[in-house]
Simulated scan of single mutants.
Amino acid sequence: MNSERLSDTEPIRFDTKIAVLLREDLEPWQRLNVTAFLVSGLGTAVPEVIGEPYADADDIPYLPMFRQPVLVLEGSKETLNAAHERALARALPRAVFTSDLFTTGNDRDNRAAVRAVRTAELDLVGLAVYGPKNGVDKVFKGARMHP
């Protein structure tokens, strides 16, 4: 992968992308909540997206984070549904957040809420995807950068 550093000063380039698509009609607090939940799924299922642990100058340790930027986009309900179909067709690692999850309060109930709805009927409000840059770009075709 071309993201490996050749020197401490050479720019790091990634041939992969992490992107989140949010439905445009979400409230600000919902956008933040959905984004946090979605990216947590990618971090656990795709370990290569996680970098090394951090430490400050006093040697206080901090948890590792993504090793590359996360692109956040927005779009209509139709754009989100089309992106979901394309992510499924490409078999890219993905996480979903549905409107039902705003009414649950824990992981067990979240999973049950998603499980109760057929794929084509999911009321998606967010989708996170990881994969090759060109594949992720094609999945999110029609979406725009989050303001």
Rank of each mutant, 00 (worst) to 15 (best):
F37V: 05
P53T: 03
P53D: 04
L88I: 15
T44L: 01
T104W: 04
N81F: 10
L124K: 12
A95K: 01
V70L: 06
K77F: 10
V20P: 12
E27K: 13
V114M: 10
P93W: 03
D56F: 10
A45H: 00
E52S: 05
A87H: 01
A57D: 15
I50H: 05
L26R: 02
L71S: 09
L26T: 02
A112Y: 07
A55N: 10
M65P: 13
D59M: 10
S99H: 08
R23N: 05
D100K: 05
Y54F: 07
T79E: 02
A113C: 08
G41F: 00
R108G: 13
L71R: 07
V96S: 00
L26D: 01
R67L: 11
D100G: 12
L32D: 15
T35K: 09
D123C: 10
A19C: 07
F37D: 00
D100V: 07
R23S: 04
V72T: 09
M65Q: 15
G105L: 14
M65L: 12
A36W: 11
P53K: 05
G51W: 15
F37T: 03
R111Q: 14
V70T: 08
S40I: 04
P64Q: 04
L32A: 13
N110G: 08
L42P: 01
W29Q: 13
A87G: 07
D59C: 14
F66Y: 07
D58R: 14
L26A: 06
G43H: 01
D25H: 05
E85R: 13
L73F: 11
F66C: 02
L42S: 00
V46Q: 00
E48V: 09
T44W: 01
T104P: 07
N33V: 05
N106G: 09
P69K: 11
L71W: 10
E48P: 10
L32R: 15
R118S: 09
A87R: 03
P64D: 04
D109C: 04
V39K: 00
R86G: 11
L71D: 06
P61V: 04
N110R: 01
L101M: 02
Y54G: 12
D109Y: 04
P53L: 01
F66R: 07
L92S: 06
R115Y: 11
D25F: 06
V72Q: 11
L38T: 02
F97N: 00
G75M: 12
T35Y: 12
N81E: 09
A87V: 01
T79V: 11
D109L: 09
F97I: 02
A95R: 00
D58W: 13
L122F: 06
P64G: 04
A55S: 07
N81Y: 11
P28T: 14
F37R: 04
E52R: 05
L71A: 07
E78A: 08
P64N: 08
N81H: 12
V34N: 05
R67M: 13
